[in-house]
């Protein structure tokens, strides 16, 4: 059957794009499945995973602290001026803590780590691809997925919840700084409201989000780097640069979409 130009051309193009997208998503899931499976390939993975935990942590911790404090401070400020209209500024602690634990902590942590560690996963693996290093691993019978991708996925699963917890804590302290120190809310009330309003379900929800985001960011970033040589929009160093950009953009988009989906599921 011919699919030449004509009235059906836009439909054909849309169909082709949809098929490509579905194919890409399928490939991404297979990549993830392979990466997860190979985490348990051998005990030799453990030092590689710990090394990646260190890399992700050392790259991201400072920026997480910084963003966490300021996010908490802004939440404190905004929350105070909203709550004070209803005479319930005493609830500030609960408002800050719940927004952080349920939403902003996992999401902003994921986005910050994407910028710091996700981008470098894509760039590092992409450079290895274009300089034959991945082929060299393959030829040495060292599975490049097990050597490069699995430790990064596993390390993300460990680091994301920890970094999210750090973000939440410094965020709550940031809210304390504006709420209590600057705007004069009673210190005891601030923490009492946190204690009474935050439930275990909020914390597990945030924890599950951070695990999901870890998988998304590590998989998308590694996938972009790993298949740098298959890109149609650039070869060589330009391909690596495009892979890095796509890794960051796609990770952030997927994180926000997944956040909505998971939130509606959890509520």
């Amino acid at each position: 059957m011919s699919t030449g130009p004509g009235i059906l051309a836009p439909v054909t193009a849309l169909g082709a794009a949809t098929l490509r997208l579905l194919g890409e998503m399928g490939a991404l899931f297979l990549f993830l499945a392979d990466g997860l499976r190979l985490i348990f390939a051998s005990p030799k993975q453990i030092p590689k995973i710990l090394n990646q935990v260190f890399v992700i942590g050392s790259k991201s911790l400072f920026v997480i602290l910084l963003i966490g404090v300021f996010t908490g401070m802004v939440l404190g400020l905004q929350g105070y001026y909203t709550l004070v209209k209803f005479g319930s500024e005493g609830l500030l602690g609960a408002a800050v803590a719940l927004s952080l634990i349920r939403e902003l902590g996992p999401v902003l942590t994921a986005i910050m780590v994407t910028g710091r560690a996700g981008s470098s996963m894509a760039a590092e693996i992409g450079v290895m691809r274009i300089t034959d290093q991945i082929d060299a691993l393959d030829v040495m019978d060292i599975n490049p997925m097990a050597y490069l991708v699995s430790p990064r996925i596993a390390a993300s699963l460990i680091s994301f919840p920890l970094l999210t917890a750090v973000f939440d804590v410094v965020g709550i302290l940031g809210g304390y700084v504006t709420g209590v120190t600057l705007l004069g809310i009673n210190e005891g009330v601030y923490f009492y409201r946190i204690q009474t309003s935050v439930e275990m379900a909020d914390i597990t929800g945030g924890f599950m989000k951070s695990l999901l985001f870890a998988v998304i960011v590590a998989t998308v970033s590694c996938y972009q780097g790993y298949f740098t040589h298959m890109r149609r929009d650039g070869v060589g160093p330009e391909g690596v640069s495009n892979s890095t950009t796509s890794a960051v953009v796609l990770s952030c988009v997927f994180v926000l979409v997944a956040d909505y989906a998971l939130t509606s599921f959890l509520l």
Binding site: E124, T131, D132, Q133, A136, L137
Partner: peptide, 9 residues
């Protein structure tokens, strides 16, 4: 390999 392909890290 032609350019050595040593792991840079």
């Amino acid at each position: 390999f032609q350019d050595g392909a040593l792991l840079g890290s």
